[in-house]
Design a protein around this nucleic acid. Structure first.
Lengths: 325, 325
DNA sequence: CTGTTAGCGCCTTCAG
DNA sequence: CTGAAGGCGCTAACAG
């Protein structure tokens, strides 16, 4: 079907396209009578603006790219949910891009976002990414970028995370309060600064002199987590507490506990988005890493930077988390 | 930064824009020498085509809308992964749209896809959707739609699902083979035909005359599944087998089993995407509902319909699944 | 082989 | 208040 255009309306009403354009955009320089007539006809003919043309003209696309290293992570859906709930209301669209944790792909996607005129980019870094040189192109194109969740320390782009170290520390302190004597820390991919930050929080909880034993393992995926925890449990029969830095490693870890009949004897805490974990038996205390509110925050900040008339200073937000038990 | 355009290149080289356009698009009507010169300059000036302009001109956007009723479902990330892996290679972008299981929102999003010139739509229906009248607008705009996963029976749009009834039947038969005497069937939202189809497969497994007892519950979410299974277990102490139609209900259901110390005594099967379930203790047999390959299939078929020069007949594909134990 | 012209659909001066 | 003209960046006839 040929779409009706502003030109069709103009022709039908024997007025100029510019008049139609003005009427439709509620420009004051149009008589109320004419505006009404135009709007009615537009309605009748199911006119809808050709947004591609609008975009070309305005040099915006109302489209935002979301580059994800690991789309399969448990809290990603809620992040997406949180983002779209904000973007939808403002007429923006969200394009999902998967870097599959490869920096080269990440760089390609950023280029792609620039070439396709995305208005902004949300980026959760690949574990291999150690510097942000490949984001420079976005600066050239004046496309704001927000880093979130998996980031590296820097001062150039806004970033939104939780306080990884502090979350891990609080979780671990909880185990210490519960009188655990040997704590197993289960972390994710060692290449992620997020893992290192959480590791630092974990060790910090033990204090300077350290009468309590701890063991740590790093697992890049669920399977590895299960494997490593199993081994750790065999090596250290006295482990009586476990901290898991994510839902992913938790799954593997609890599977290992379960297999060794230690589900009830090893006290567990976790940083979790709070979905799955609620159905664990026995209940597991956790620091809630809420994807939806992180998504909100990311979207709001990015829109802010996009719609600002002049360059805004980056912010470096660490979101509040709460401990649930 | 002002982006360099083909006009800039033309000016610099004192040739016409159309020549530049031709050179860049490898049109044969350009001398090799000139083409080289143009391409080199383009490279040097970091020229990249303004795709918005290309889209306006071509009346395509290389963008596809994915409308999801429940973005939080476990197999959605792998579906997205599967889709993007195909689309990426073909230069298409994927826009994620959440209907939050509301038909009115679903209708709005479809309109939106039409207005923003999406080249195609992938749609997993809301549980409230009982007819497809609100898709008619996409026909007017000549935008192909593929239904997948949550669909209703129809012959107008291509659809891709698994064979829900048969999957459920096979799972249930497995329980019967294992000599279960009273089987609990745990289903999702009763409004979904997907649930009803799986229910039909479930009951079919018991055959005409039916010496084996069964009980069924329908749960719209994890919490409800837990609750209802708990109640069922209390009412029917003889339940010794359980079929769960999805990972979601499985989580709630096993949590209930666990709480009542029946994890080891009630044999369980499930239709699952195969991620989480691998880490269950004890192991759970399941029919694998692979999100990634479903995503592949959906993307391939949609691209096929988009790029076809003439109208293609819809297909109604039920994907193969395999039983894992 | 290259240039000219026109147009995709819309918005935005500039006139009147 | 309305019309005319130009342009966003690119492609596609039509000439020569």
């Amino acid at each position: 079907m040929k779409r009706t255009t502003i030109k069709d309306l103009a022709q039908a009403l024997q007025v100029n396209v510019s008049t139609v354009s003005r009427a439709l955009n509620n420009h004051p320089d149009v008589s109320d009578a004419l505006r009404e007539k135009i709007k009615q006809l537009a309605e009748a003919l199911h006119y809808t603006p050709n947004l591609t043309a609008v975009y070309l003209q305005s040099r915006k696309t109302k489209t935002i790219g979301l580059i994800l290293a690991e789309i399969g992570q448990f809290f990603i859906p809620s992040v997406i949910q949180g983002i779209t709930s904000i973007l939808d209301a403002k007429g923006y669209k969200l394009v999902i891009l998967a870097s599959n944790d490869k920096q080269s792909k990440e760089a390609d996607l950023i280029k792609m976002c620039c070439y396709t005129q995305m208005d902004g980019i949300m980026l959760s870094l690949s574990s291999a990414t150690k510097n942000l040189d490949h984001l420079a192109i976005a600066n050239e194109y004046d496309i704001p970028i927000i880093l979130f969740d998996k980031i590296i320390e820097q001062r150039k782009y806004s970033s939104i995370t939780i306080n990884d170290a502090s979350c891990a520390e609080k979780c671990t302190s909880y185990l210490l309060q519960q009188q655990c004597k040997h704590i197993l820390g289960v972390f994710g991919n060692k290449d992620l600064s997020l893992s290192i930050n959480r590791l630092n929080g974990f060790t910090k909880a033990f204090g300077i002199k350290n009468p309590i034993a701890f063991t740590t393992v790093f697992a890049a995926n669920i399977q590895e987590a299960k494997q490593l925890v199993q081994e750790a449990l065999q090596t250290h029969a006295d482990i009586d507490g476990m901290f898991c830095m994510s839902d992913e490693v938790l799954i593997g870890a609890t599977s290992a506990l379960h297999a060794q009949q230690k589900l009830l004897t090893i006290r567990t805490v976790c940083i979790s988005d709070g979905q799955l974990i609620n159905y664990h038996v026995p209940p597991i205390a956790y620091m809630k890493h809420d994807g939806a509110s992180m998504g909100h925050a990311v979207a709001i900040q990015l829109l802010h930077e996009i719609e600002a008339t002049e360059k805004v200073e980056p912010i470096f937000l660490q979101m509040d988390t709460k401990f649930v038990q």
